[in-house]
Every structure is written in C-alpha cells, then in structure tokens.
Design a protein around this nucleic acid. Structure first.
Length: 479
RNA sequence: CGGGGCGUAGCUCAGCUUGGUAGAGCGCACGGUUUGGGUCCGUGAGGUCGUCAGUUCGAAUCUGGCCGCCCCGACCA
C-alpha cells in the first residue's frame, strides 16, 4: 500500500519542502503563528552543525558566551541605520510582574547593541583587544510571512561579535569568518556556496559592508546561508566602545558580527532532498547508518538479530552514528521508505541470506532503489561503510555543484538576465546604481545576491547600463 | 498589511447545498498472519464538529462577530 506520498519537487517545490520537514520528523509548528518546534531529529542535526562551526570558531580564538534576551528599548535606537532596519520587526515587552514597565524591553532581534554596551565597559586598553566572542542563542523578529526553518519569528543561530584595534584587523576577521562558513558549508554540509560581498541595498543595517555565502536550492532560487558583517566604527561610536592606544590616544574600536542560523537546515533540505525525502550529508547526519534486520520466523530472527547487533556494535565502536532497526511487525520495505524519508545516508540490511553467506546489503541514500544497493562481505564492514559515507558525501557535493553550474548563466544583456533567473542565477558585469538594482528587482523578482569574491580578470561592460564595469555580480530569485 | 483558502478523531479529509442519533482512510492498542521495497484479517480505543452569539422544537449544517492556521504578494537570517 502506498502510504501518503510526498509531493514531488517538480510538482510543487514549496509544498514538497513543507511536507519533508514534517514527515522527516525534523520539526513541527508551534502554537503561535510563525514559531516552530524543533524535534529531536532536527535538533541533533543542529547540534552537529554547532559542533562543526564551534571547532572552526575556536581554531581562530573565538570563545562562547551568553548575553541577555532582553534589551532596553533605548539601546536599539542608538545606531541610526540599525533602528531603521529592525524597528518594524521588534517584539516588545511592555508589562512585567503585572505592572507596566517604565521603559519597554525589546526581545533581541540580534545582539549588537547589548554586546556593544558590554564591550564599552570591558574594553579599556589596546591590550584588551581583540575581543572574540560567539553566542549560541535564539532571537525574535516579527516576520510577516514565515516558513519553517527558512523564516520563523523565533529562530536559533550563532552570532559572533568581535572588537579590534584597526580597520584592517576587523576586515580580516570579517573575511576569516566568511571563509570559515564557506569551509563548513562545502566540506561538512556538502552545500556549495558562493562567498561574496552584498550590495549597498542588501547590507546589514549598521554595517559598513556585509559578506554572504549564497547557495542555490533545488528549484534554482538563492538562499543566503550565512553572513559576516564588517561594522566599521558604527556601533563603537553608538555605544562608545573605545580603547587607549599604545600612543596613549583614545580610539574607537572596529567591530564585526557574523551569523549562521537554523535556516541552514532549510538549505540542507532544499539542496540535497529528492522525491523520496530528505538526504542528510553524512558528516552532519544525526544518524549516519541504519542497520535493518530482516527475518520471518522465530528461527530466522534468532539467527539474524545477533549478526545485526554485532555489525551495529562494530560500527558504533568505530565512532559512526548508527541505529539498529529491529522493529517487528514492520516489513522491510516500510522501514526502507521511512529511513529514506528521514535521509539516512547509508543503510545496512541483514537478512537470513546474509547470515548464511556472511554478507550484507549496503544501500546508499543518494541513489535510491536497486541501483544504489551493493552486496558485500561482512568482513571489514566498518571500513566499507566508512568508505561509502565518504563516497556519498562527495557525490552530494558534486551533484549540488553541477546543478548550480548548470543553472548559472553568464549574461551580457538584460534579456539574458530575465531568462536566466527563470530557472537559476545570472552572472554578469554590473555597474548599475542602487536604483537600477531596485528596478531589476521589481521587474524580474531577482536580487543582486552578491559580488563574488572570486572575480574574473580585467573589466567589462555592464549588462544593464552599458557602462564600463569593474566587477561581476550574481543575480537570482531568493528565499 | 493586501489577496486567497481552511478550521469536524493524532493526521488527511467526507458530511453542510436541502437542519433531525458523528463518518471514512491512515495512524494508534490488542490478537493472529506476514516480513529481501509501503503484508493481510479481525477486534478496540479515540471527537464539548475553532470560539462566542443569533435563528430554530432541534445547528457540524443557516446568519453574524471573534480567534487561529496555511498559501500567494510587499518586508526580511
């Protein structure tokens, strides 16, 4: 019996996405509009993301800390651009303990202000610099339209905040974290990204410059998957973050902030998933391998279970995140469909025939059905599974990268852009103004995703204005 | 905030036009049967029909208000 089938990606990508989040047991809707409940399977993925990012942060000297979720409303108004950018989407607490508050409290939409205030007290001398702190927390933004993981009113993320003595050091840190994000995304999540600089229009409120990693989803749309901001001296001036230099001069600090959110889970789903469900990249997968035992009669069960258990134990001892599915009253086929929906990258099947032949069936999630199955000896199963996990990891990255390349088109005129952004991204020389950018957005729904870090040599002609252009921009429709 | 759709069992929905004892499938529990790609049969548990008011002898059904959710646009990690 075909159980309730997943809507296909080609039929309705949005509906496919919504269903997969629920069916793969990642998350559920919260009782308040636009909020989500992250279920254990989704949270485990998030924890693995945290682990991969934390190790990269710590390698650059960043330490974790925690700041309050409540911020005095007055803080938000101190930086002009910042207040303009965030005022419309603030959740504000006006009552506490049954009484109206003297000053309303803002639920943090991001922590630049409260951290800036702390830094102004902590930093006295050039010897106190740099300050390198990261926070894993939740933030609230009163969004008009929400989508689970991609845009929820409350979401989880990390926000790193650093303070430096010089502009050069702040820029170096901004790019260093952009590199960390790129490395994480490509090598852990197998999500290929284009690192680049945001246009003026898309720059974070209060930043001098914003860098981004842009990923192409399975429907050709772009998802901003991480950002790194060079805040210049804007927040230092607003919050009076000063230090005394070696020359005994009072100087404003240069600060940065950078973040990756639970939105990244959406990126993983929409990059790798297929019509059978989710596909987890092995390096981040909550469950990397599931061992499915197959038996009919009690006698077969007696023979199969110990072998399945032994293989499970061996894989676990090797540090692989493995689960043994020994559920009875459930046919093997039903189990396969379930684990495919949940995106487990490798499945090991052990049945009576395998016990007899000392073999096992290995199935890889990225190639569904019989084509992705191989029958191997049980001997050396750990190495074979590890090998297959690596193979799947590499195959996912290659498939996503090929897809992105196939759907990114170099354009030399506006018509070319219009065609390209129907199905993917347009890349071309750009010398347009902020206003030109808005017109393109209005007419095509495509936005300037970034000026890629990786630029071609020389100069060109702007595909829109015909003016000489010094850099290439990437355009696409975005989430 | 504009446009659209929907609130009935855990989930997906039927019933509403034409008011009269609350339904199905899936899921769940139990028993049996089956198990190498979504087994089958039986038994059973489970619902103040979003909410408030109105019309009526009688409302899931008709009328109005309110609340909520989803989708599409403008805004955004």
């Amino acid at each position: 019996m075909a159980a309730d089938k997943l809507t296909s990606r080609s039929e309705d990508f949005s509906e496919w996405y919504n269903q997969i989040v629920l069916k793969a047991d990642m998350a559920d809707y919260g009782p308040v509009r636009g909020t989500m409940i992250v279920k254990p399977y989704g949270w485990k993925l998030w924890e693995n993301i945290q682990g991969a990012l934390n190790s990269r942060f710590q390698a650059t000297g960043v330490e974790n800390a925690a700041f309050p979720i409540f911020i005095p409303q007055s803080f938000l108004t101190k930086e002009a651009q910042h207040v303009e950018g965030f005022a419309p989407e603030l959740a504000i607490v006006t009552h506490g303990g049954g009484k109206e508050l003297a000053e309303p409290i803002v639920v943090r939409p991001t922590s630049e202000t409260v951290i800036g205030d702390a830094y102004s007290r902590w930093i006295q001398s050039f010897r106190d610099l740099p300050v390198l702190i990261n926070c894993w927390n939740n933030v609230v933004r009163w969004e008009m339209r929400t989508r689970i993981f991609l845009r929820t009113m409350e979401f989880y993320w990390q926000e790193g905040h650093t303070a430096h003595a010089t502009a050069a050091e702040a820029e170096e840190r901004t790019l260093m974290m952009l590199d960390a994000y790129t490395d994480f995304s490509v090598n852990e999540a197998a999500v290929p990204v284009v690192p680049g600089l945001k246009s003026n229009n898309e720059t974070f409120p209060g930043a001098d410059s914003t860098y981004t990693i842009e990923a192409m989803m399975g429907d050709g749309k772009a998802l901003q998957s991480g950002t790194s901001h060079n805040l210049g001296q804007n927040f230092a001036k607003a919050f009076d973050i000063k230090y005394l230099s070696e020359e005994n001069e009072r100087e404003f600090c240069w600060t940065t902030s950078w973040g990756v959110s639970t939105r990244f889970i959406g990126a993983i789903i929409m990059t790798h998933g297929d019509d059978n469900g989710l596909i987890m990249p092995p390096r981040l997968a909550p469950i990397q391998v599931v061992v499915v035992s197959i038996f009919k009669k009690a006698k077969e069960k007696e023979a199969v279970l110990p072998v399945a258990q032994r293989i499970f134990d061996e894989l676990k001892a090797a540090g692989i995140r493995v689960k043994l599915d020994d559920r009875e009253n459930m046919s093997p086929g039903a189990k396969y469909y379930e684990w495919e929906m949940r995106g487990v990258p490798v499945r090991v099947e052990i049945g009576p025939r395998d016990v007899q032949k000392e073999s096992a069936a290995l199935a890889r999630r990225d190639i569904p059905g019989r084509d992705g199955k191989s029958f191997v000896p049980q001997e050396n199963i750990v190495a074979q599974v590890q090998n297959l996990l690596d193979t799947v990891q590499a195959a996912l990255l290659k498939r996503a990268t090929d897809f992105r390349e196939d759907n990114t088109h170099d354009v030399t005129d506006y018509a070319g852009l219009k065609t390209a952004v129907q199905t993917g991204w347009a890349r071309g020389w750009w010398a347009g103004s902020d206003e030109d950018e808005n017109i393109v957005k209005q007419e095509t729904k495509a936005t300037l995703r970034c000026y890629p870090i990786d630029q071609p040599e020389g100069e060109g002609v702007c595909f829109y204005t015909g003016k000489p252009a010094t850099r290439v921009a990437l355009f696409g429709r975005a989430y």
